[in-house]
Computed example of a mutant assay.
Amino acid sequence: MSHRKKIDEVTGVETTGHVWDGDICELNKPLPKWWLYTFYACILWSIGYWIVYPAWPTINGYTKGVLNYSQRDQVQHDIDAWKSGHAKYRTQIADMSLADIRKNDELFQFSIAGGAALFGENCSACHGRGAQGGIGYPNLNDDDWLWGGNFEKIHQTIAFGVRNGNPNAHDTAMPRFGIDKILDEAQISDVANFVRSFSHLDVDAAAAKRGAQIFADNCAACHGEQGKGNQEMGAPNLTDAIWLYGNSQDAVMQSVRTGRGGIMPAWSERLDPVAIKMLTLFVYSLGGGQADATSTSAPASAADKP
């Protein structure tokens, strides 16, 4: 590699003297003046920024800067301003019953907006962004409810949840007929056929006939003789086309075998009472809420749907 400088004949620019393979030269072409000036200006700007704003970490914190600006403080200021602006609505929600809030259009719309945000942050992971649910997670848009769909029932399910250890939670559980050896596999298959016949699905007629007595002896106490369900016990209606875990023979057998025992958190342990009310109103507004003319106070029970 040569180190002899020369002027490139094509560009007229001096080379650095570095040559490769005998004729490949490196041009010594400086950066444009505007680029250099911009670069120097950025250096000066950064020095000024370090002086004016918090910038450098120290042993006990960080340099505060001349302005002593804190983005954390600014965010907190914005949050406090938001809370101050909406304090009157939150106070009204706290003091009023859900039924009365529903009659106040302005307050109801505020609650729906807040409830939608809370739902997205806390509930959508299981129930879906559109509350459409999924396998094992109830669809909140229809009018099929395990524990009831009026204000009070929805409020209780959200506030205290299902089978989570909270003393106020819905705690009724379906027996584990297979795991606890209450029924054998043949009996489970027969009763699954009978349960599926409620929804007019294709079943083994002989098996369904045998399963009828098994259902009467083991399931009717909760689901009713006609399979219509019982919201007081969280027993789903078996005669419609809505299934929480699916309607295939295998899925129904698994439900009978294990009892499923789904769990829902007690949101009153994580959210304040106003947030619980807003969530209740939002879920109620999705389309499946059941009217209850007697609802006049803040509820104490709530929604889980198959």
Rank of each mutant, 00 (worst) to 15 (best):
M1L: 14
K6G: 05
T11Q: 08
V19C: 10
D21L: 14
D23P: 00
I24A: 13
E26C: 11
N28A: 15
P32Q: 09
K33D: 12
C42Y: 07
I43N: 09
W45A: 14
Y49N: 05
V52P: 00
V52N: 00
V52E: 01
V52R: 00
P54C: 02
T58D: 09
G61L: 03
G61A: 01
Y69C: 00
Q74L: 02
A87S: 14
K88P: 05
Q92V: 00
M96T: 02
K103W: 04
F108P: 00
S111N: 00
A116D: 03
A116P: 01
G120V: 01
E121K: 15
D142T: 01
D143P: 04
G149D: 01
N150F: 00
I154N: 05
Q156T: 11
N168F: 14
D171M: 09
A173K: 13
P175S: 15
R176N: 12
G178M: 10
S189D: 04
S199N: 09
D204R: 08
K209S: 07
G211Q: 05
D217H: 04
D217C: 01
H223Q: 08
Q226V: 06
K228N: 14
G229D: 07
N237E: 02
D240A: 05
Y245M: 15
Y245K: 10
G246Y: 00
Q249N: 13
D250C: 05
V256L: 15
R257A: 12
G259W: 01
R270M: 14
M278F: 01
G288A: 08
A291V: 10
D292V: 11
A293D: 10
T294C: 06
A300P: 01
A300M: 05
S301I: 08
